[in-house]
């Protein structure tokens, strides 16, 4: 083999070997264990923080609400659906038994018309099936703009929960 071809071949060999070495060094340890990915990515995804507790947890402290709710139309509604994620609250609220809860642990108290409107605002797509087979009722729909917006005697704005108990509507 002529000298210059030898040089060329060795230059290529060096590049290829370097590449293979780099490939070995840079491939993450768990790569390829389960498939063409880092197997460690699964536990990494599983380790993300939770925010929602689930209503089974709420019952631990707020049993009276649960029994209240069980009698009404909102029986199957999860607490956190209206009150927001409560895992932090469930974990740490205990420590503030006699004191005021810090804001970060307070749950959302949905008392605006728009909060109820999320489910109950009248909408053509909403009237479809009977939800409560025992009482044979559909989800209740109102026009939140027209349904008693103000108290006729005091002329003050009225919110839904002035008249309806959200836990037992």
């Amino acid at each position: 083999m002529p000298q210059h071809i030898k040089r060329l071949v060795s230059a290529f060999a060096v590049v290829i070997i370097l590449f293979l070495v780099m490939q070995q060094v840079l491939t993450p340890a768990s790569f390829g264990k389960l498939g063409h990915y880092r197997a460690d990515a699964i536990p990494e995804n599983e380790m993300k923080t939770l925010h929602y507790a689930g209503s089974a947890v709420c019952t631990n402290c707020h049993e009276e609400m649960q029994t209240d709710k069980a009698l009404g139309f909102h029986a199957q509604l999860q607490c956190e659906a209206c009150h927001g994620p409560g895992l932090k609250h469930a974990l740490y609220a205990d420590k503030f038994k006699d004191k005021e809860l810090p804001d970060s642990l307070k749950l959302h108290k949905p008392d605006q018309r728009k909060d109820c409107a999320l489910c109950h605002e009248i909408n053509a797509a909403r009237i479809k099936i009977v939800f409560d087979t025992i009482n044979n009722t559909m989800i209740h729909q109102v026009n939140t703009l027209k349904h008693n917006p103000v108290n006729k005697r005091t002329n003050e704005k009225v919110i839904c929960i002035d008249c309806h108990n959200p836990h037992q509507p």
Binding site: Y52, G54, L77, Q78
Partner: peptide, 18 residues
Amino acid sequence: IHRLEKGKNPACFEMCPT
């Protein structure tokens, strides 16, 4: 998957009122 792993339902399933 972080909820499934702890035996809880995914958030959207958990919060669906219907």
